[in-house]
């Protein structure tokens, strides 16, 4: 018998292949944006030097390949991106890839804490509300969800700062760690965690409301189905029914949302990181816009897109693993 490749692996490979055209389109998009932006690399260089004569500028253009036809430039740009060469940042005087890698950790940490908080609390509250549908508790939770959804993260951030930092003095107002603290070991972990409490809360509330609403309707839908009635008829207790029969099925749409929301969440980190002066990709994006550092900005777009594609890929795999009805081949 021939050794067979596991279907999950084939499914994973096919999903990866499907991502390639999207990545190529994004590369073309960033190239287009760079061309639309006023000024190019040479303008930035010459501006840095404080001016140069026309012959020198023309030579620089030729050196950077900016005198080539647009298709050649696009091709070279895409080849560079494919090897993760994102060009140079003229603000930080470093390769863009280096600048981005410095910032990536903070953003990923913020994403991880916000998503886990939004996911776990949203799902718990949503399931709780669905089991007591149309009761006072359900109305309260649903109203809260609507208000969370309508509150912009920057407004929430300011109000939390006012309460917890200015009035009560419980939490630090910004940054990722105490500058002159030099904490090590657990003290360092606690210090970073204290700095992340408010940014995490500000970023996660809106997504918490998404999960809450989705989970509420999803649980109500699943609870109506025949297999739940059968399980109840066979004498399954309410807890077992909830955990074993309902939640496993009701969670599936929430897993899909997890992947879909990731890109919006990364976008939301721009505002939250800027307010709380967290040295992450979002803050860098804002600073790059202010300083017109287009190379860095395009690098952020490209890196964020790759992260989003990876996260979507992983959630797809998780979904396929959880839902045995999906045909993998």
């Amino acid at each position: 018998m021939k050794p067979t490749i596991p279907p999950l692996l084939i499914y994973a490979l096919r999903r990866l292949l499907q991502a390639i055209p999207v990545i190529i389109l994004i590369m073309m998009g960033t190239f287009l944006l760079l061309k639309m932006a006023p000024g190019d690399t040479v303008d930035a260089l010459v501006g840095d030097m404080g001016g140069a004569d026309a012959a020198f500028i023309a030579r620089l253009r030729a050196e950077y390949g900016l005198d080539q036809p647009i298709w050649v430039q696009l091709w070279r740009y895409m080849v560079k991106l494919a090897t993760f060469d994102l060009g140079r940042s003229f603000v930080y005087e470093q390769p863009v890839a280096t600048v981005l890698m410095d910032r990536l950790g903070t953003t990923l940490l913020l994403m991880a804490t916000s998503l886990s908080l939004a996911f776990s609390i949203g799902i718990t509250l949503g399931a709780f509300a669905a089991r007591r549908a149309y009761s006072l508790a359900d109305n309260l939770i649903s109203t809260l969800g609507l208000i969370f959804y309508a509150t912009p993260s920057f407004f929430l951030s300011l109000m939390m700062m006012l309460l917890f930092s200015v009035k009560l003095g419980w939490l630090p107002v910004g940054g990722i760690k105490t500058i002159a603290g030099f904490y090590t070991g657990w003290d360092h972990v606690v210090d970073v965690a204290r700095h992340l409490v408010m940014p995490t809360a500000a970023l996660s509330l809106i997504y918490l409301s998404f999960y809450l609403r989705l989970m509420r309707s999803s649980v109500m839908q699943v609870a109506d189905q025949d297999f739940v009635r059968t399980a109840r008829a066979k004498g399954a207790g309410e807890t077992r029914l909830m955990v074993h029969h309902i939640m496993r099925n009701a969670l599936l749409p929430a897993v899909t949302l997890f992947g879909l929301q990731f890109s919006t969440l990364l976008g939301g980190s721009v505002v939250v990181e800027t307010i709380f002066t967290l040295p992450g990709l979002g803050q860098l994006a804002y600073q790059s816009v202010i300083q017109r550092d287009m190379n860095t900005l395009m690098g952020i777009i490209f890196l964020c897109s790759i992260i989003v594609i990876l996260v979507n890929f992983l959630t797809d795999l998780l979904y396929a693993r959880l839902d045995s009805r999906i045909e993998l081949s």
Binding site: P21, V22, L25, I26, G29, L33, M36, A37, P38, L260, S263, T264, L266, G267, G268, V270, V271, A285, Y286, V289, R292, M294, L297, M298, I300, I301, C304, S305, V308, I309, N312
Partner: peptide, 22 residues
């Protein structure tokens, strides 16, 4: 649909900032 996916992949607020910068 690939174009749509590309737009969905890029974080929309970052794209918005870029467009406003340009």
């Amino acid at each position: 649909m690939r174009v749509t996916e590309a737009f969905q992949t890029i974080p929309n607020f970052v794209l918005l900032l870029t467009l406003v910068a340009i």
